[in-house]
Amino acid sequence: MRPRPFLLHRPNTLKEASELLYSHEDAKPLAGGQSLIPMMKLRIYSPEEIVMIGHLPEMQPGVKQEGSTIVINSMTTHDMVHHNELISEYLPVLSEAAAAIADQQIRNRGTIGGNIAHGDPSTNLSAALLALDAKVLASGKDGQREIPIDEFFLDLFTTALEPGEIITGFKVDIPKNSRQKFMKITRSDTAFPLAFVAVNIQLSDGVVKDARIGLGVAAPTPIRATEAEEYLKNKQLNQETILKTAEMATKDLEPPGDVHASPEYRKNLLNVLMKRCLNSLLEEVKQ
């Protein structure tokens, strides 16, 4: 299928891009096209105007360390996120989540900014960035701001981005004594995923000092399992606490259902993945 007609803009500056997006209600920014192009070709989403942003200097792929913070630019592809040394070292959950996105061709095109920008609850990186307490760097016509990831996802396909705002990158403080894990279940790499979980815990002498858990395809938005996180704090990681955490993380969920997974089955998978993530971290610690 082919997309409906649209007007294509190629602004020269980020500011120009923001202004275009602000002044055209039906305009949408295009980065790698991983999500947008298929939606347009399926004709389930047809923006009247497209604003290209991938070429803008501020967006260019790049990962750098600024003190105790990792900054990831918006156009960094999934493949780059997967293989980047800083990310593998300090934010392995993000690297693992990127590696689990679709197939190699898509990982070569899709970008971290685009993965987050739609507010789609089925994107891997959203759960990982939730677990990492990332900040979304947004640039609008009135300047830059940082949006805590916890405040970013508002509803299904709805984010905190204001009209005209573009994601330019992400900031993540390097977590200390952190153990991280991403796990996903999908019937095929390019299919709508069944469930995934991203975990980031800070451990000290086997005791959990802090925990952040991101859940995917669990609700209308990417969400955190805050109740379970609270429970886990100051607990020894063991079979009992793991079971309890998984139970608390998933008991009130109402995940979407489809031909591949009923809401109940998705809930079960989230529970299982939760346990497996924590068990795998427990194994890591033991070694």
Binding site: L42, S188, F192, D258, H260
Partner: peptide, 12 residues
């Protein structure tokens, strides 16, 4: 409900 490769899954 399985009208494209998102939902109609073909083994590769």
């Amino acid at each position: 409900l399985t009208s494209n490769f998102w939902d109609y899954l073909v083994a590769g």
